[in-house]
Design a binder for these strands. Sequence first.
DNA 1: GGCATAATTCTAAAATTGTCGAAATATTAT
DNA 2: ATAATATTTCGACAATTTTAGAATTATGCC
Lengths: 113, 113
Amino acid sequence: MTGQLQQAAGRLKALGHPVRLSILRRVVQGPEAGTPAGELQTRLDIPASTLSHHLATLSDAGLVLVAREGTTLRYRADFGVLHALTEYLWQDCCSGGTEPKPEPDPSPCCRRD
Amino acid sequence: MTGQLQQAAGRLKALGHPVRLSILRRVVQGPEAGTPAGELQTRLDIPASTLSHHLATLSDAGLVLVAREGTTLRYRADFGVLHALTEYLWQDCCSGGTEPKPEPDPSPCCRRD
DNA sequence: GGCATAATTCTAAAATTGTCGAAATATTAT
DNA sequence: ATAATATTTCGACAATTTTAGAATTATGCC
């Protein structure tokens, strides 16, 4: 029963490292099928073992997914999780407390008609 | 010269702790003038020195602002910074990479999925 | 099987973080 | 000035994180 807050904190923590945030950026901007670890290693120019550790951290947090393709491992972003996290952060930290009205007001940007 | 990515990583790191995320929630949901540290301490039921440390972390990261009012210190959220961080996270990690659809307003509050 | 490539896991170290009691600081009231 | 209250800073320790070379696993190819 890992609470939602605990989970969000864990994911934010995983993102809270320059190298890991860089990794995620690369992965997000890479091909949809995933970016090989080796390519990330070349781009970021860090030891393979260090990279692997960071990838494991991101993977354990559920932010990235991995799939083997021959000898290479392709990492790709889990957009659903990333979106949910962003949403949680926003709802919980910004719109949640600023106004007494949670969401009744249909601001112009959200109107669909 | 602290890059934007470095700064974002630092802020995400500050948020990446259950106690600090709880603090921020309280602060956000509290009065606009700010929530006294003592009240946070009572609510969260942690030693004052521990709380103070976490508040300093949040403050150093620029996520919360502090103002003295008599003997009490009131902490309040820096809405602008929080919004910018959320925005950066979303742009950089989700819509920034795979962008087949142009979003006029990328603010998470206006999502439609 | 033997070899090469890709990536992880092992191991160990340095550095950082989290915790909290005790002491110190700041402010107001008496 | 002394006291009382609110909060931080100090000091010390345990736990975690970060880093990276060396060893290991996994896969594909000859």
